[in-house]
């Protein structure tokens, strides 16, 4: 835990750097499904962000505290009633969107609590995923490391799916960053990108 190194972490989780690039110094962030608190710690160290995580797992609560970040134990699928409206500059959902049950309500809640939302998720439209399905198998990869029977991912989507979701739900996309590994993807992102990161706000 003491060997925590922001540079190493960013290479292990390229979406962290992509997210950090959108966070101005000293911003307030709420990280939903924050895991062991690595992203929050990364944002604290690189962006001086003032943040809180929300986690359901006991083990991760301890890990967050060990990482020196604030964490609130709770189930994000039951809403964000513990948080006031417009309390944060950013509400982040990093690699968690696909594992939420009430995804629609949660995105709405993100934009109630935060001025902007940031999500990252594995792109199910990535060509390897498509190829797997074409070959008759559910995709298993670094981004989707689970078997069909033990996956927490109940709401997988593609970039196109997410973007139409935003249009239908009065969500305005402000930026998009598509990656495969740590390489940024510009061409045919819905086919050649394995991870997508979006920044968005309420459409007015």
């Amino acid at each position: 835990m003491n060997a925590h190194d922001p540079a190493k972490l960013a290479s292990a989780r390229p979406d962290f750097a992509a997210i950090a690039a959108w966070i101005p110094k000293g911003a307030s962030v709420l990280d939903l499904g924050c895991g062991d608190g690595s992203l929050l710690r990364y944002l604290k160290e690189t962006r001086e962000a003032r943040g809180y995580g929300v986690e359901i797992s006991d083990q991760n609560i301890v890990a967050c505290i060990q990482n020196g970040v604030n964490v609130i134990q709770g189930d994000i699928d039951s809403g964000l009633s513990g948080f006031e409206s417009n309390a944060f500059d950013f509400v982040i959902l990093s690699q968690t969107l696909q594992a939420t049950r009430h995804t629609e309500r949660l995105v709405k809640e993100m934009l109630r609590v935060g001025r902007e939302g940031i999500v990252s998720f594995p792109n199910f439209g990535y060509w390897r995923a498509r190829l797997n399905v074409l070959l008759g198998k559910m995709p298993v990869s670094d981004d989707l490391p689970y078997q069909w029977y033990d996956t927490p991912n109940v709401h997988l989507c593609t970039l196109d799916d997410f973007e139409s979701f935003c249009t239908q739900h009065q969500v305005e996309i402000l930026s998009r960053h598509v990656m495969t590994g740590d390489r940024t993807v510009y061409l045919l992102p819905n086919l050649s990108g394995s991870t997508a990161v979006y920044r968005f706000k309420r459409a007015v």
Binding site: S28, D58, N70, V71, I72, Q73, G82, F83, E84
Partner: peptide, 21 residues
């Protein structure tokens, strides 16, 4: 305890909250 936590969050204080089974 969640009510306490909410008030602390409102005041932007550092707080962690654990709900122990």
């Amino acid at each position: 305890s969640r009510a306490i936590t909410k008030a602390l969050l409102h005041n932007r204080l550092n707080v962690s909250y654990g709900e122990i089974t």
